[in-house]
Nucleic acid binder design. Structure first.
Lengths: 143, 143
DNA sequence: TTTAAAGTAACTTTTATTGTTACATCAAAA
DNA sequence: TTTTGATGTAACAATAAAAGTTACTTTAAA
């Protein structure tokens, strides 16, 4: 299974956007994360649907933040990306009438749910403006 | 990304084995989880390497538990399967010199590590004999 | 009218698990 | 001693989801 790096990549882009007061193009974002503008648009479109960014076509178009990073959490972005399953561990479901399969899956599910709940709780506690705020502010001052 | 269902499947098999006092063949195990004997051997070979099961070739051959299920935890089996990454979330690593990428990945990594630690801790607290012991014992009595 | 941008459909590539085929090896049974 | 039933294993195909790519449409500013 290939890893889903959309969350990491899009956070990277959003933090960059904060420091730029013009619309940022998909082309520029693609350079930030070493990929193709179409890949960027695909992911950014999900954030636009959830109202974290806006986009405009045509000359001097591009993407803008729709609200301050302080008002967006990691959990918000995770949700906007579709709330996909976060675990590589899958449960077999070929014999749902088998009590052993049920018991095994119930145990695994309980543990995974607890771990996921913790993870989402932490994501909900981190706003995007906090992502390396210390390092980044000193870095920006150097330029 | 396809899910890794080896843990769920092999636990299912191990609990079944407990109730059978003869060697169990790969063919029989394959039926339990609706797959191919080769797939079973591949996964079971990892458990044999870690000394949780033994196998014998030839007539009346097959697989046997090497120790009581009460002496094996979910974590033991998870380790035996190779301790693979449990998250579908990946971190981008194209710009390791970029402070923003660093900050984003550090935040995500911290949260994922905490969630993984909780999950492995829980896995370590569950021995295989506890997997649905109540349901399974009443089920076995009915036959 | 040209140009610079997003929007989007369709297809290919990648990557790891899973599935399959084929055959070697081994040990018990006939 | 030969047959049979089992594991061991190499090599390859199928699957699935993200990521990458190509090509084209639409839009709006220059």
């Amino acid at each position: 299974m290939r890893k889903d790096s959309r969350l990491s990549r899009v956070l990277h882009i959003l933090v960059h956007m904060q420091a730029i007061d013009r619309p940022v193009t998909s082309e520029q974002m693609a350079e930030m994360i070493s990929t193709n503008p179409v890949v960027v648009r695909r992911t950014m479109a999900l954030l636009r649907t959830a109202n974290y960014v806006t986009s405009t076509k045509g000359h001097h178009g591009g993407w803008k933040l729709a609200k301050p990073l302080a008002n967006i959490t990691l959990l918000d972005i995770h949700h906007a990306l579709g709330d996909g399953s976060i675990f590589t561990i899958g449960l077999s479901d070929e014999h749902t009438q088998c009590v052993i399969e049920q018991a095994v899956n119930e145990a695994l599910n309980d543990v995974m749910n607890e771990a996921e709940a913790l993870m989402l709780k932490r994501f909900g506690q981190i706003t995007l403006d906090k992502l390396g705020a210390d390092k980044i502010s000193s870095y920006l001052k150097e330029r």
